[in-house]
Each structure stands twice: as C-alpha cells, then as structure tokens.
Amino acid sequence: MTLSSDASVIDVSEVTRTFVLRRRTGWMRRERSDVHAVRDLSFSVRAGEMVGYLGPNGAGKSTTIKMLVGILTPSAGRLRVAGLDPSRQRLRLARRIGVVFGQRSALWSDLPLRDSFDLIQRIYRIPPARYRQNLDEFIQLLDLASFIDTPVRQLSLGQRMRGSVTAAFLPEPEIVYLDEPTIGLDVVSKAAVRSFLSRTNRESGTTILLTTHDMTDVEQLCRRVMVIDHGRLGFDGTLDELRTRIGGVRTLRVDLAEPQPAMTIEGARVVRVDGARQWLEFSAQDSAAPLVSAVAARYPLVDLAVGEPAIEDIVARLYTTDRLPAVPPSRTDPDPTHPPSPVR
C-alpha cells in the first residue's frame, strides 16, 4: 500500500455513465430515453492533490463523485481509487475515504453533533487519544464549540455543513470528496471551511476533490481545475492555464485629463465611459503594453489600471459558449497554441 511519489490515487479512464429514463406516455406505453451523465471521462489525481471540479448544473459532477465513491457503477470504462474498484470494493474503500454530499447529511439529525462524532469514532475505530486530539483541533479550526452539543436538526445550514466536514475528516481518510461543500454558507463559514480544507490538504496530505459553483473556492483552494460540461471533460489544468486558454477579456481602465468621447483604439473596445474615465476591453491573450502606449500616444493619460478577467467570467464563458477548448495532451505540458475545438 506504499505509494510512490507520482502514483495516482484516483484513476478514471474512459468512463461513461448512462441513465435510462422510462417515461410513461400512455396507459401502458413507456418511452425509453438515455441520459449520458458522463461520457468518456478520463483523468487521474495524484496523492495529496486538491482538485476543483467545475461544471454547470447537470454537467455530471455528482455522478462522477458517486462513481468514485462506489455508489454508482460506470456503464463503461475503468475506475480505480486507491487501487480499488469502488463499486465492487465499496466497503473496503469506505474506510479510506470521506465524503461530504452538500445536500444530504451523514449526521444524526435528532442527536447533538457530538454524538455523531462519537459514533464515527467507534465505526472507524479511531483510537481514543487520536480522536480527542483531532476533534479538539477541528472544533477550534471550524469553530464548532458553540453548537457541538445542539441537536443537528436545530443547526443552521452553515453550522451543519461544518459538522459534516468534520465528520468526513475525523477518520483521517486518504481521499475526501466534497460535493458543493460551501453551498448556502455565509462568508465566515465559507472562509472557515476553506482554510480548514487547505490546511488539512497541506498538513495531512489528504487528497481532495471538490465540486463547487463558487469560483472563490477554486481560486483560493485549487491549483488544479477540471471543467466538465455535458458529461465531457472540457478542461484540465491550472487556473492560469484556464485563463489563457479560454481567452477571456482583460480590462484597461484609463483616467484622462478631461472628459473625452469614447476612444478608438486598435485591438480594444470601449465598454464604458464615465466622465474622464473610460474602460476598454481587450483579449486576455494580448499584452497590455502596446495598448497602453497606443492610448498614451493619442490621449492625455493621467492614470491607468489593468483588470484580470474574473474567474467567474471565464467559467461563464466556458459554460455558455458551446466551444470548450480541447483537453491538453498532458496536464503538466499545456500547449497554448492548441486551437480550440468544438465539443459537440
């Protein structure tokens, strides 16, 4: 069970998952239709990585996680987690992984939070001293102290989520999947969960795969991002690569000496004018330098600022344009010149 340094703990190759839907169309007639939740999905995750798994609603994120946990079998393809076949060796795998399903809780809703934790200690056979040490630490990190003796039913969404995260990490799993762990959380709870995740990932080397719709989660936590849409992997790489690849727009804000009509500059477009201040959009792949000198040459420039494309915008573009850039041949060897190709 010793893992070499570049061994992958999660191995997904050409996995497809099809749901068969049967719709009643008449008294006895039924219609059958297939939903391809995941198609030809391949990726691997190395031990200790923290990966953000993005995609619009219905993209297949939860389906992927369920297959990785072993509560769904792939319709085709091969899946290995920690060397095990999840759906066949579900129970053996269960000891080594943790899962947080954003919507459903593994906690006992009628009992105080602490009771659920105590039960986890027994089920996962965590040595008492180790358990106490972990729990104390988690209570402090996730700020559970004020409600750990409250029945889960009475907890707020954010408190419950912090409880669920604790429950998943208490047995010190090697791999943790989090399906929308920050859904419905306020800023403080989000920050607590995020710093907890990054700390655990860093200090215990826990491999973490998380899905989210909150781009701040991704920006703050994940060096690596995978984007899935319509069941296909559209992107796999770092955030910076994503920025370059999707070719979002950057903005140039210029303050002129006096109000002017909208400027006309090659390679950029004025999107807003407000008195002496104007905003220009230009391609994220282009350098800002020629643009700045072009502006300075023709207008009385007082001040300027370059805005990076917001990650939200990038992802929104990914989701809305049907054109996803092709998966780079290798995650570590991105090829920025690779032309985008249509997915469908």
Binding site: G48, P127, E203, R223
Partner: peptide, 23 residues
C-alpha cells in the same frame, strides 16, 4: 503517509505523520 504532496508545502512539518487506516 501517502507520498509527497502536489502543493509545495513541504516546509510545513506535520504533527500527523501516520494515517489511521488499518491501525
């Protein structure tokens, strides 16, 4: 523990050098 980490956080020495699995 399972190998090195992807993140370059090696400097942070961990107080938790072992896992519980199979303990």
């Amino acid at each position: 523990a399972p190998a090195e980490l992807a993140a370059a956080a090696a400097a942070d020495a961990s107080p938790r050098p072992t896992r519980l699995v199979g303990s």
